[in-house]
Design a protein around this nucleic acid. Structure first.
Length: 676
DNA sequence: CACCCTCGAGTTCC
DNA sequence: CTCGAGGGTG
């Protein structure tokens, strides 16, 4: 059965009905085996969507749960869930409702706390000794995982940990969230990779799996952490009546308590305080899926009562999910300009990080095999750097058995030619030199921004002119006539003229751009620039010996060979000749190293990131190079400065981590002027 | 030879 | 952004 909320509810009802027939009417309609099968299916759905599980789920019923792994333990007080808010308006509406019930709340104080993406755990202390650790379960009854909980090093086995003067209630039951720090998670996965074992999908997944280990020795090896945030129950002694004092009290007893919680003495301040969390989410070392807003005065909050299972005195402001699951419907294959076949995932559209995504690259066929991704799988998706969708891996627990493995196609999906896998390479190639897909991608690359920068010649138009047989290689672009373009769909005078104009203008592009545009294997923006500065013309590169090329720093035997091979091919010789014939033969003065020496940025590696004000990305790179600096695209230890604009991404973070000085645009210009 | 860095190539959505 | 491959270094 497909995993949808509708099916889930239907299945739940069905099971509850059979349960009733069996236990109440004593007249079962189906066999025990069939009943168990339904339960298993339900549990699979719940494994994928834990958020669907409500107390009326048959899997939550004590005794009916077939999992015999852990003993059932009733909680001393309900372990409640929270109502959700998705924006500040929801928060306001929530508070307005509470004021109606209790007008004196108008001036009340609040706590904001991280809503950690982990697993709720309830810890029971008797006479200061940890006696039991229980999962949340349905909120009424949980599972005894004491042995596993004991292995979490930050959980005190005895309280108070060091301040003996604090009195502890005879029985103290606290609630916390078990999770894994992102850094610990990454380290764990690195170790698994080193051992060649399967990696975990995400910290939450790992924490959940670790806590449900039968063998607590395994749990002990997992770097689990916990933050405590609630006193669920106590017998004897007194506990502070406000949330912020309680957190302080818990901290003094020796419990780990998050440092991110904040106190606000009125609603307006709290509302403003919510803004802080966007940044907190970025910077802290653990995943949070929201902020919990709590009325600080706990007796008052409790007096508000409940909506269903949710206490009215608290609400969770949920962030848009960054990681979501969806069904992998199919795997498609693209053909790149080099002939590389690249698989991509087509999945049921889902909202991830605020936008709907339906496709993501799968990089290569080994990636699919190594992660064991199958068509029909429920897969975990995230937006890498919050932009590009990325398939983390399959949720194997949700498998039903009809998922299909995927293997690299033996023929090109576009031209049908046999594919090949080169020795020692991961990529699978379509080796047909005249594969139309390759031609289209090739022309697209030629016209692209880093290359000849022909505006108006995007993938769609390239497809049109190639399919109409107007262009068989890039040199044909310069033979395009107005009439021919006008015969294409969507082309009128204006569009045709603009395109012809842009093509004509491209004849004046400098040597480095033309070299990049040719699409020689291994020669991109950076290599093209290197070659241009060393050789000065296309001909001089074409005539260069392999050894000469190899002697250049940054060019090794492979790239040197690729360059020689490219210029050896007759079809390419023709292209170069024709381009020259149409007036494309850029030359530049060969640069010696010494001529750069006096420039203000000589010897400096500079990376630009974020949206800049005065310069475009291209512009700032040119500025850096004009002044003798090197402009790279990624930050490393060798980077001297990072120029940061608005909305910087991970590069700015990495720079901060490595202690690399950060410059604004203005500071860069200052640096240039100062050194002149 | 292992490791780090850089580059190239393919990619998503608005 | 991610991955693979090429190049350089200790």
């Amino acid at each position: 059965m497909e995993i949808t909320l509708e099916n889930y509810e239907k299945l739940k009802q069905e099971i509850n009905y059979h349960n009733y027939q069996y236990h109440v009417n004593d007249a079962p309609l189906i066999s025990d085996a069939e009943f168990d099968h339904l339960l298993i299916e339900l549990r699979e759905m719940e494994a994928v969507h834990p958020e669907w599980v409500s107390p009326d789920s048959p899997t939550m019923r004590a005794g009916s749960v077939t999992s015999e792994k852990f003993a059932k333990v009733p909680h001393p007080a309900p372990v409640l869930s929270l109502a959700n808010a998705f924006n500040k308006n929801d928060v306001r509406a929530w508070f307005d409702r509470q004021i109606k019930t209790d007008p004196q709340l108008e001036t009340c104080a609040f706590m904001l706390e991280p809503k950690i993406d982990g697993l709720t755990i309830v810890l029971r202390y008797e006479n200061g000794i940890l006696v039991q650790g229980v999962t949340r379960g349905d909120g009424i009854i949980g599972e005894d995982v004491t042995a596993n909980v004991r292995t979490i090093k930050s959980i005190p086995l005895r309280i108070p940990v060091n301040k003996t003067e604090i009195s502890v209630p005879r029985v103290l039951v606290v609630r916390g969230e078990v999770f894994m720090f992102n850094s610990d998670f990454e380290k764990l996965n690195e170790e698994l990779i080193a051992k060649g074992e399967k990696t975990w999908l995400n910290p939450r997944n790992t924490a959940a799996g670790s806590l449900r280990q039968q063998n607590s020795d395994i749990t002990a090896k997992r770097p689990l952490s916990i933050y405590i945030y609630q006193i669920l129950y106590h017998e004897g002694g007194t506990v502070p009546p406000t949330q912020h004092d309680r957190l302080e009290y818990l901290r003094e007893l020796g419990f780990p308590v998050s440092n991110e919680s904040r106190y606000y003495n009125n609603f307006g301040a709290m509302l403003e305080g919510l803004d802080r969390w966007t940044e907190v989410r970025e910077t802290i070392d653990f995943d949070i899926d929201g902020v919990v807003i709590k009325i600080d005065d706990l007796p008052r909050a409790e007096a508000l009562g409940f909506v269903g299972k949710d206490p009215r005195g608290q609400i969770a402001l949920k962030f848009p999910a960054r990681e979501v699951t969806t069904i992998l419907e199919n795997i498609g294959v693209n053909v790149g300009r080099t002939g590389v076949l690249t698989p991509f995932a087509m999945f049921e559209p889902v909202v991830c990080g605020g936008v709907t995504v339906s496709k993501a690259t799968l990089h290569n066929f080994d990636f699919i095999r190594d992660r064991d991704i199958r068509i029909g799988d429920r897969v975990l998706i995230k937006r890498a750097g919050d932009v590009i969708p990325y398939v983390i891996g399959p949720i194997t627990e949700a498998r039903k058995g009809d998922e299909k493995a995927f293997t690299a196609p033996e023929t090109c999906p576009v031209c049908g030619h046999k594919t090949e896998r080169l020795e020692g390479e991961v990529a699978v190639y379509c080796v047909n030199a005249s594969c139309p897909a390759q031609l289209i991608r090739n022309v697209e690359h030629y016209a692209s921004r880093g290359a000849m920068d022909i505006t108006g010649l995007g993938i769609k138009v390239v497809e049109q002119i190639v399919n109409a047989d107007l262009v068989r290689d890039v040199s044909d672009l310069y033979t395009l006539s107005r009439e021919a373009l006008l015969s294409l769909e969507g082309f009128a005078d204006k569009k045709a003229d603009n395109l012809l104009d842009a093509i004509k203008t491209s004849k004046k592009q400098p040597l480095n751009r033309l070299l990049n545009a040719l699409g020689i294997r291994g020669v991109g923006e950076a290599m093209a620039e290197l070659l241009a500065n060393r050789f000065g013309s296309v001909d001089s590169i074409a005539n260069a010996e392999k050894e000469t090329l190899e002697s250049i720093e940054g060019i090794g035997p492979n790239i040197a060979q690729a360059i020689v091979d490219w210029f050896d091919q007759d079809s390419n010789k023709t292209i170069v000749e024709r381009l020259k014939h149409f007036g494309l033969d850029p030359r530049i003065e060969i640069q010696s190293r010494d001529s750069q020496k006096d420039l203000p940025l000589y010897g400096l590696n500079i990376v630009a990131t974020g949206t800049l004000q005065a310069y475009s990305r291209e512009g700032i790179k040119a500025l850096i190079k004009e002044n003798g600096g090197k402009s790279a695209d990624s930050v490393s230890k060798k980077t001297d400065y990072v120029v940061v604009g608005d909305n910087p991404g991970s590069k700015a973070e990495k720079a901060a981590k490595l202690g690399i000085p950060i410059l604004s645009e203005a500071q860069l210009i200052e640096l240039i002027n100062k050194n002149q």
